[in-house]
Design a protein around this nucleic acid. Structure first.
Lengths: 225, 225
DNA sequence: TGACTTTAGTCACATAAAGTGACTAATTCG
DNA sequence: CGAATTAGTCACTTTATGTGACTAAAGTCA
């Protein structure tokens, strides 16, 4: 295991990844089993080589854990508060990654934990996971990240469930579909899927079309000073 | 000047600050004159002490440059692409800060540069500044950052000009004021200011009132896949 | 089989938000 | 004084969003 001299004057960092997926009807995060304390878990991380790009290092961390790179990944910042961290680095540069649950099988030594039932973690790791959750929620209306949690084809009800999960509230079916229609983001396939009870649902795929920029004015949507 | 061994295995970082203000009718960034090459400028930075919080280090960097801490500051991430940087650190952890132009007087060795006429910079510094610009624009409807570029009292026309500057487009006066009214963010003072020609304008202050959370559904507002 | 339940998909109307031009008000300039 | 300039407001239009009710196609079960 990597160790460094705490008295060194150089401020050091590690690259940590928060891999997120949608398991059932809640979000889940991937953890790596601790090599020394077998009952402890931590977010996957590494100390990048000199000259290695940050996002490349993060992609490698995710790949080592899942055998594939996340469908979407974004840096969520550097975290320096809280003392203990597996890497012993002063700060963690964190990335959040989204993977569809269907194709994401963790390698041995890694496991998914539902967001609401995480293993014991250091304050820094809890802060990073909370920041990841907020980043996902905030990106939702800025980038098509919800589709990155679904397989290539999906029903509109599945898509709506993902949005309800990420937003933490129910959405009205008609409003959701009208907005989706207006956004030209999905197109229907020829296939239908019967889930047992109820009318079969048509399968759609993510296929964004060009459209004009919605020219809106200002928004004062924030709540807190 | 701080130097470190490039062959060291420890990945190192510096803390860089992008201080932003509104000068006339465009944004400006504060730079520090390079100590060795007198004609070069760079963003203010430092290597934090071990154990020093990142935001505390950033506040100190800004304070050294301006004699005051920014009215608003936020970390915008870690930047590792691009080779040359004054600090010689592998990555820069960047913070964007907003200061009202009226009270922000740079110390000797520092100067404001308008966004559209920046001095020659390394790719990494250009990337950080561009990211700062995007962060400001994106935060605009999530936090009251526009008020952080204005003095304590201001006219609604001044406020609208700040928004037009940050959004890069003209806004309709009536729409702007209607939205502002609905947001309960400002309250009028007893003072009026005459700018020479035209009717005098009433002065307002930033005084947010509590209000219910705007319960909106989904937004598919993004343009790019 | 046929009534009932369940999920998918759509419609029409009501309400809320945003875009827009035109108006009045108060000041300076000539 | 009257034109020009900036502030502030109004009323109307257009667009977006909220919402309940409807039809459609499947399974369940007496």
């Amino acid at each position: 295991m990597y160790m460094r001299d705490r008295s060194s004057k150089t401020a050091s960092y590690s690259v940590d990844v928060i891999p997120v997926t949608a398991m059932g009807n809640e979000l889940a995060v991937l953890f790596a089993r601790n090599s020394t304390e077998r009952e402890r878990w931590s977010l996957p991380w590494k100390i990048p080589q000199t000259g290695e790009m940050l996002d490349a290092a993060a992609a490698r961390v995710a790949d080592d854990a899942l055998g594939e790179s996340p469908a979407w990944m974004e840096q969520i910042g550097a975290f320096g508060d809280g003392k203990r961290h597996p890497s012993d680095a002063d700060v963690s540069i964190a990335f959040v990654g989204l993977v569809p649950h269907e194709t994401a099988t963790p390698r041995t030594g890694y496991a998914w934990f539902p967001m609401r039932d995480l293993p014991p973690l250091s304050p820094r790791q809890r802060a990073m996971i909370e920041s990841a959750r907020r980043t996902i929620e905030g990106r939702l209306d800025q980038a098509p990240i919800a589709f990155r949690l679904l397989p290539a084809t999906f029903t509109l009800s599945e898509l709506q469930q993902i949005y309800e999960l990420l937003l933490g509230k129910r959405l009205h079916k008609a409003s959701f579909r009208r907005a989706l229609q207006a956004a030209w983001l999905v197109e229907p396939t020829e296939e239908w899927r019967s889930e047992g009870r109820g009318r079969p649902a048509q399968l759609f795929r993510y296929a964004p079309k060009k459209r004009r920029r919605p020219q809106r004015g200002v928004r004062f949507d924030f709540l807190y000073p």
